[in-house]
């Protein structure tokens, strides 16, 4: 009970809710860098995934490269980014940039793989029917494939978001604030209340992000058609009403 009480006391202490190392600032830092990484990763991965999915050209190689990239440890990515960013800017190079670059690189594979898989899983009969109706290739993509794949794509973005939020935590070690700061300082200063409060906040943010993207993904899922009772057999108009067209 002791430590739980300490954590509640720490989290509800007004002093921890203000200033540059206060909870709102740390949450904002964490969310801002995560969102930036997620947006940039999406801007890179979505067009590639849509292109290779839609044209079915080079899809397997793109997925294989993305799959192999998933094997690279994020800390190694940060480490490899440091010497490069130091060349660009010795000041910032040792601070926020390496973590940001690693977060972007990590975010790309899940979005790319899910976009490609989502688009290629769309029933071929549907896209051929759309082609036959005279839709252009772009219209097929935006009007048929994208809406049907949206839920799978969103799951990929959600998976990227969770990985990115976790990696942002490491940023605290590399000179960037965020919620990881409470963990690093908590260990360094033997402050268990701060440490466990940090654990609670970091875990809540990650689990919350996963739940939010899961909800979005379900909301985007295409409506199931009840194939047991084909719509054609049901009267589509009240009797007596003249059919239009």
């Amino acid at each position: 009970m002791g430590i739980i009480g300490d954590v509640i006391a720490w989290l509800t202490d007004p002093a921890h809710w203000t200033g540059p190392s206060g909870i709102p600032t740390r949450v904002a830092e964490h969310l801002a860098i995560s969102l930036a990484a997620l947006v940039i990763a999406s801007l890179i991965a979505l067009p590639i995934g849509l292109y290779v999915g839609h044209t079915r050209r080079g899809g397997q190689s793109a997925v294989n490269v993305a799959n192999l990239a998933r094997a690279i440890p994020s800390l190694a990515l940060i480490g490899i980014a440091v010497p490069i960013t130091v060349l660009v800017d010795p000041q910032v190079g040792f601070k926020v940039l390496p973590t940001l670059i690693a977060m972007i690189v990590l975010g790309i594979p899940p979005i790319l793989i899910n976009t490609y898989t989502g688009i290629t899983e769309v029933d071929r009969d549907l896209t051929e029917a759309a082609n036959g109706m005279g839709l252009t290739s772009r219209q097929v993509l935006t009007g048929v494939e994208l809406p049907l794949a949206a839920s799978v794509i969103m799951a990929g973005i959600g998976s990227a978001a969770v990985q990115i939020i976790a990696t942002a935590t490491l940023g605290a070690i590399f000179g960037f604030g965020g919620l990881g700061s409470y963990l690093v300082q908590g260990i360094a200063q033997n402050d268990d209340a701060m440490l466990f409060s940090g654990v609670v906040l970091v875990a809540a943010l990650a689990v919350g992000a996963e739940a939010a993207f899961g909800f979005l993904g379900r909301a985007l899922r295409p409506h199931e058609v009840d194939t047991a009772t084909p719509a054609l057999l049901e009267p589509s108009q009240p009797e007596g009403t003249p059919a239009v067209g």
Binding site: T169, F196, V199, V202, A206
Partner: peptide
């Protein structure tokens, strides 16, 4: 699995 690993490692220290 969703919990960032630095948090779980840190939580073990005390």
């Amino acid at each position: 699995y969703t919990i960032p690993s630095l948090a779980l490692f840190a939580a073990m220290v005390p």
